[in-house]
Design a binder for these strands. Sequence first.
RNA 1: GCGGAAGUAGCUCAAUUGGUAGAGCGAUAGCCUUCCAAGCUAUAGGUCGCGAGUUCGAGACUCGUCUUCCGCUCCA
Length: 480
Amino acid sequence: MTTNENKFQQIISHAKEYGFVFQSSEIYDGLSAVYDYGPYGSELKKNIRDYWWKSMTQMNENIVGIDAAIFMHPLTWKASGHVDNFSDPMIDNRDSNKRYRVDHLIEGLADKLKEEGKTQEAESLLAEMDRLLVAEDYAALKELIVTNKIVCATGGTSNWTDVRQFNLMFSTEIGSVAEEADKIYLRPETAQGIFVNFLNVQKTARMKIPFGIAQTGKAFRNEIVARQFIFRMREFEQMEMQFFIRPGTQKEWYEHWKETRLQWHLSLGVPREKYRYHDHVKLAHYADAALDIEYEFPFGFKEVEGIHSRTDFDLKNHQLLSGKKLQYFDNEINQNYIPYVIETSIGLDRMFLLILSESYEEETLTKEDGSTDTRALLRIPAKIAPIKLAILPLTKKDGLPEIARQVMDECKNYFRCFYEEKDTIGKRYRRMDAIGTPFCITIDHQTKEDQTVTIRYRDTMQQERIPVSKVKEIVLNNIM
RNA sequence: GCGGAAGUAGCUCAAUUGGUAGAGCGAUAGCCUUCCAAGCUAUAGGUCGCGAGUUCGAGACUCGUCUUCCGCUCCA
């Protein structure tokens, strides 16, 4: 437990030291739960995103992608349930540190009054509460709790904080003139951009059910607790796919995607035992089945991806609020219906952290003279590594850099390369290990005579002599 | 949001009972014909998280504030 805790700290330090992840606005003391990706981090993140995108769209003829805007019509979030379900006023008890939804607290008292036969008193209490909730009069709501002597169920005291609004969605204004400005939200999930475009996509790409729409993009949530590095962020990136199906077939498609998505994870070389499924017992308002794919992070098994059977909840509500028919005519059964949906939703930042956690290693090496040395390395799968190939002239004279530059020019159109002629060769190898570069080639004096170079493998530290003309091909074979 | 701990160079840490900051590693430039981080030389880099207060004088003491870490609470 403690060693894992240390390992997590080491990963965080390593991520900063080698240009993967920085805290946002660090020179101003940082911004809580917001992080920036550095030179190698942004490459890795992009590679993970591309790998997901390709596996969804390129590898499945019935899945297409979109890129919907972050801003959406405010009614979108009314339809999705985000406005009503996730923006309740809350109050804390200072003694027990318990947090309550204000309406639950007052409704609790009303129920008690009804049991005591004071029905009229209960009704007027609830009416007053509703009036204040609509008016967003938080001071009066607190007053209502205090005057009715509502106490904390745990501590039994009435030492309450002020009533506060915990809206998990970020809001801003649209419209350049203040008076015309209208409240608008930053999307808390990318899914709704897919749902509102369901008909556009289905018609223009001539999709037939079952089919999927994939999207990657930023989403924003005002998390109550922001901690655990990039695991929980206020601004994060999702990779989602909504799969539209005939009602009644949700069970089999749910199973299909449950299995398919786990296989995707395993394709990155992560052992099966580091994953587990976690079925949701308490389902969200939109789902009839849901599970998480969890990975064993250094701080325990945590959700990386969710598979949700969302029924027709979203399309049905958008149809209701927009007044537009969001239906599909199924020729096979000669029927019109609102499709059911299976969602796969994975956090890109969590996947990034997963890759770091899985690939980070501090290895102890025994040298020829018997002394020991440590090497910090990232065993990132070659296909998503930030840098694929390092090109290193053994010395920076005798024409070696010139040959190295030729190799560089030949390879850099195909994959990301890194050229380095400074410091001892050992030091350069270790630097490449630290950022997860799978292959290094070294140009030496022998290269001038027989056109061969040394290729050195990150994971084994093994080296072998290969023709310089084979370099590009070898790397390409390993990253495709 | 509550409670506890911490905050000195990119990193890890020093600075005698308060007397206006140092080292190692790293980085940068160069030397050494150098295949697994420890050879040599030089250089850069800090208003000691920020703001007040006590004091002749504060990195060290007091208060506030911000951030981070640990626990509790919450989570679509």
